[in-house]
């Protein structure tokens, strides 16, 4: 493998470990905006998400009972989808010699 490929494969493996393993230890406290919305009393104005009920809603894969496994799978699916969409877009946009 050339240097470029080694770098990309290493980076992708690190990314998959972060999304598929480390993420299951992430804090579940509300994030900055959610906390401000609660404290300032406008959290209630949030509407139900139109894709609530999606198979990966809330970074959990529907039908997978184990909480950690479900979150890990959702992370890996998200990384895969982002890589496919982003990578495809950037390959189309790139300058060709």
């Amino acid at each position: 493998m050339n240097r470029q490929r080694v770098f990309l494969v290493t980076g992708l493996l690190i990314t998959l470990v972060l999304a598929g393993f480390v993420s299951t230890f992430a804090s579940s406290s509300p994030d900055g905006l959610e906390k401000v919305a609660e404290d300032q009393g406008f959290a209630g104005t949030a509407r139900k998400h139109p894709l609530a009920g999606s198979p990966v809603e809330g970074y959990a894969v529907a039908g997978v009972d184990d909480e950690h496994l479900s979150g890990a799978l959702a992370g890996v699916i998200g990384v895969g989808a982002t890589l496919a969409l982003g990578g495809g877009l950037f390959l189309v946009l790139r300058r060709r010699p």
Binding site: G11, T15, A19, A26, S27, S29, G78, G87
Partner: peptide
Amino acid sequence: LDDRTAPLAGLVAAFVFAGQMLNFPV
């Protein structure tokens, strides 16, 4: 973007997705 930076950009997007899942307590 060129042949070398386009794959890196795809990886950066994927990394940002992963990073956004990692909530840290503040």
